[in-house]
Design a protein around this nucleic acid. Structure first.
Lengths: 201, 201
DNA sequence: CGCATGCTTGACACCAAGTGTCATTAGGGG
DNA sequence: CCCCTAATGACACTTGGTGTCAAGCATGCG
């Protein structure tokens, strides 16, 4: 039962450093902007060396993007859990909603990070790059779900459309002042896309 | 009539330098890979100083991505030229096709650049970032075309879906050995997406 | 207890991307 | 012929990111 109640202390310490680094970075970056904060600033605030920072994060962008890191695997898992006979549009709507909800549910902090990403070209680029991987994962899962061959374009297109919906909802939601209901936005987006998503060849 | 037959020599010289820089960069990058080539290598091959390089391109990625630079404005122009009563799916199919054709028609060089971009994370990131701008432009044009208000999500979703189609076609086409017909791929992609694109609210 | 082992860290040197500054040069127009 | 502008190269500098190595510290074992 005790699958992993005790991550060996060493791992817990490691997690502690990572958390502190993330906290210090997001705080500084959200307040001063991405370019106005150097890695030295971050490690100064966190109390570690620059070298240690790059042992935990591959790049300065990575601190921010990794904060949204589990969302990719989360979405694939969410899609895998939907009943097999469910129409793609419904399954994907729940998939996207799981991610949107993870963003919208975590309070002010996540909103600030989203705004930071969408407003910083370098961060947006990394975010989209990561999304391209999510797209491949979702497409793979869709192919498996529907028992399709590798020939058709449908899985890639459907996964891409779902992520476009995700981006659009995120953009609208983060642009407003909490006046936009993310659930309603997600439903609206999938109402538009559903005719294509359910037109499985 | 002579709108601009003589770009003042100075501008012609400037263009010459830019072309030589682009040529040297693409040649080296395509052969050795993005990370294995430094800016000093490029400027050495082109016979200019490093400082001059950054007067022409904002970053190392920019040399590659700017090579596909006109495609963004080209797509918007292509969309604007389509007849107003044409269904969105048809207009957007022609829009995407104009870009795909620009890639597929320019011979081996463009194919190598596409493969370089899709195979290099840093370049893919910049490419997707630029596409996000194209998406906004296309969405704006769609809003104008259809006389929609700023409330709905349709324009962003439709533009995003079209660009997903573009990416998917590009990916398939560049992965094959010329055995894939880009026109057929484009048609197939839009056959899937059309039901959503034409479901204007 | 003492020691070996492995993991994490910090210090330091180093490379590459990108920017600010300034002196030089070449064209172009009066 | 001279001045004005634009382009360039040289150089120093900041910042992101990596390689290397020695020191610190917990753990395990004799």
């Amino acid at each position: 039962m005790t699958a992993r109640p005790e991550p060996t202390l060493a791992q817990r310490k490691r997690q502690l450093v990572a958390d502190e680094l993330t906290r210090a970075a997001l705080d500084l970056l959200a307040r001063k902007g991405f370019d106005a904060v150097t890695v030295d600033d971050i490690v100064g605030a966190a109390g570690v060396s620059k070298r240690t920072f790059f042992r935990y994060f591959a790049s300065k962008e990575d601190v921010v993007v990794q904060f949204l890191g589990e969302m990719g695997t989360g979405m694939r898992a969410a899609l895998a859990e939907r009943p097999a006979q469910e129409p793609p549009s419904v399954a994907l709507r729940h998939t996207v909603w799981s991610a949107v909800d993870a963003c919208a549910g975590h309070g002010e902090q996540t909103l600030r990070v989203i705004r930071l990403i969408l407003g910083t070209p370098a961060l947006l680029a990394r975010f989209l790059e990561r999304q391209a991987q999510w797209r491949d994962a979702l497409a793979e899962e869709l192919t498996r779900r529907l028992g399709l061959g590798p020939a058709g374009l449908y899985p890639q297109l459907a996964a891409g459309a779902a992520l476009t919906a995700f981006d659009t909802v995120l953009q609208r939601w983060s642009a407003g002042e909490g006046d936009q209901d993310p659930a309603a936005l997600t439903d609206e987006a999938f109402a538009v896309l559903a005719p294509a998503l359910d037109s499985v060849v």
